[in-house]
Design a protein around this nucleic acid. Sequence first.
DNA 1: TATGAATGAGTTTTCATTCAT
DNA 2: CATGAATGAAAACTCATTCAT
Lengths: 211, 211, 211, 211
Amino acid sequence: MATEENLKIIGKCPACQGPDRREAVRKAAVTLFAKKGFHATSTAEVAKLAGVSEGTIFYYFGSKEGILLDLLSEVNLKYRQRMAKVLEKAPDGLSAVLAGVEFHFKQVRQHSRLLTLLVRDLPASLGRGESEPREFMRRQTALILEVMCQSLRRGQEDGSVAADLPVMETALLIRSLLIGATRLLLLKLAPEVDYVGQAVGFCRRALAPCP
Amino acid sequence: MATEENLKIIGKCPACQGPDRREAVRKAAVTLFAKKGFHATSTAEVAKLAGVSEGTIFYYFGSKEGILLDLLSEVNLKYRQRMAKVLEKAPDGLSAVLAGVEFHFKQVRQHSRLLTLLVRDLPASLGRGESEPREFMRRQTALILEVMCQSLRRGQEDGSVAADLPVMETALLIRSLLIGATRLLLLKLAPEVDYVGQAVGFCRRALAPCP
Amino acid sequence: MATEENLKIIGKCPACQGPDRREAVRKAAVTLFAKKGFHATSTAEVAKLAGVSEGTIFYYFGSKEGILLDLLSEVNLKYRQRMAKVLEKAPDGLSAVLAGVEFHFKQVRQHSRLLTLLVRDLPASLGRGESEPREFMRRQTALILEVMCQSLRRGQEDGSVAADLPVMETALLIRSLLIGATRLLLLKLAPEVDYVGQAVGFCRRALAPCP
Amino acid sequence: MATEENLKIIGKCPACQGPDRREAVRKAAVTLFAKKGFHATSTAEVAKLAGVSEGTIFYYFGSKEGILLDLLSEVNLKYRQRMAKVLEKAPDGLSAVLAGVEFHFKQVRQHSRLLTLLVRDLPASLGRGESEPREFMRRQTALILEVMCQSLRRGQEDGSVAADLPVMETALLIRSLLIGATRLLLLKLAPEVDYVGQAVGFCRRALAPCP
DNA sequence: TATGAATGAGTTTTCATTCAT
DNA sequence: CATGAATGAAAACTCATTCAT
């Protein structure tokens, strides 16, 4: 086919047509937002790195915030789906929760750029008060919490988790631990020790019924 | 004194002279940064709320980021000092750590505006490379971690904390939990349940030696 | 015919083919230009309201200004034709002029959206130098003036209009009155009183020969 | 004084300091708005012609529309004040009105640039619907109408104006005539004849009581 | 010490227009 | 004929910072 060759000749990335332009913007945005932060990145930079015109960004995403929202909803969705899959496979409730903890740290390592957006640029960058994007984030958080709650309940039923623990509060604590750890890790504010294993142990002791 | 009288005449608050101007800027900045975020707040707004000229801000703080850094260092210092005092009073290491956890949540409630600065959007320079302000943040985090580590070691010596726990990693986990919880609480991303008590229990079970 | 069926299937208005597309654009443009003004209306909005693609607009009208010019020439043509018909029917010159005045106010009421275009913001090219669209507007004005002049001359011949009035200047004054009134009425800058009758009386006294 | 000399040396217009910068912007804006129209003039152009930075414009006027509003309120104020003075001097009501008509045409000739703003860029350029600037314009129009009404009433009292004419409607008609004429004159849409004298005669016949 | 007028580089966003299909 | 993805130039506006006073 001549098209691809021609594109090479005129110096255009052959992947950058049609919906691929959208993807190119997303990729560029992830890279820059993760490296410099949402506010410190201009749409001009994103456009340049993506190899598209600035207009294209607004054609596809409507606004700068639109890119971030689009990115985040995907991060959240994939994270949740994978997390859910991991939890399902576990033999009992406690194992599920602990597998979730382990999974989270693995994700942080593997998708650090994307998750950095979650701990640095969001939701602080988004509209304050009762804005639409804020509500969006709250929903996302609630969904992830729900998954965690289910495993905890399952654990209380099968006896692997202490029965007297209030489910929601406990889920919040585990979630807090994961969020805080991600922040310390990705913003490199803490010494670079690997504490995944310790995190699992920490939670196990906190959750398991007293023998 | 002529000064005070004059000030009354021209309608300026007599407290807003000399070093008080500095303080006025700090107060205004805390309020605005916490409410709207660092990026969304302009120096003009800060100056206006503080009742000083824009030039004054730069005279005292050098830059917009300078205000934030100044604020953060004070938040950290006071937090650390108070935390240290709380830990000292505890009868044993475990109680110290748990008292620290409880103290943290109390602080969040009492000084929410100030602490919001820590979980809200940090300036870009804090997120990238080896900038000076970045190093500053890391130092602050390290100092707080150190305090926590001391209590853990003390607990291992007096037998109230499991002896096989690696101190630094465990301190990081507790710190993570506190940071994550603060974020969820202050950014109002989680249901508004009170989980201080649960947090203490969670940590006690995770730290206490197996009976 | 397959076309109509297909259109129904894909949910497109069957009237929107061929020259009807042109008409759809015109209708949408009138609505939006009258409501929001020429400058504040984007071609995208026009295309959307018309249910056609953006390209179509440029296919038919060449440019955004082209739509306006097309619209204006039609407004003027119809206005002139109708005005001419009204003037013809009048028994004498003065009655013709006064009927014209009355007719104008009726038009303003009936076709307010279309006529608003004439008093609203014209594109920059209409306001400057010797541009082509500028010349176009001047021609339109001249044509309407000419009609008015004819009636005045007729009135002077049949004695219903004072013989010593300079025709062109008088026509310009009447036209001025109509234009100004339209502006005040359509832009709703004046109290909403109905002054058609008064306008007719005003002109009659100004034109009729002194008894 | 050294200051003025220095300024000349570094190539700055000596008039362009302090509040004179504000004035420089106003002057530049009048020139450009009148020549090209409000929409077709960019703030960059205004800044360049005024010899100030673009920021300065926003420092003083807040927005592009702010310049226009500022300009217009001054035009209106001066116009009204001068008009009032002219009307006062007249020996009777009819003379007052006619002097006002004559005065208007004189103004149009003398301050054509400024008045062009009134007939072309306003109020079409300003916010639609019930916007603040729109209301501003309505108030301005009302004030001018009021002045005209006073003279008409005075004329009816002293017998120089027909007693049976409804004051407001008549004022509106005269105002309409002036507005329309200004538009035709300044936008150069009509043949360039001088019809001031005719306008006065036209109005006299329309207003004077039938002998 | 304190001011605030002035800046200009930078921001996000808009939009008429083009053109390959 | 008709589309709509893509553009890029330009727009209005913001704001941290400076500096003469």
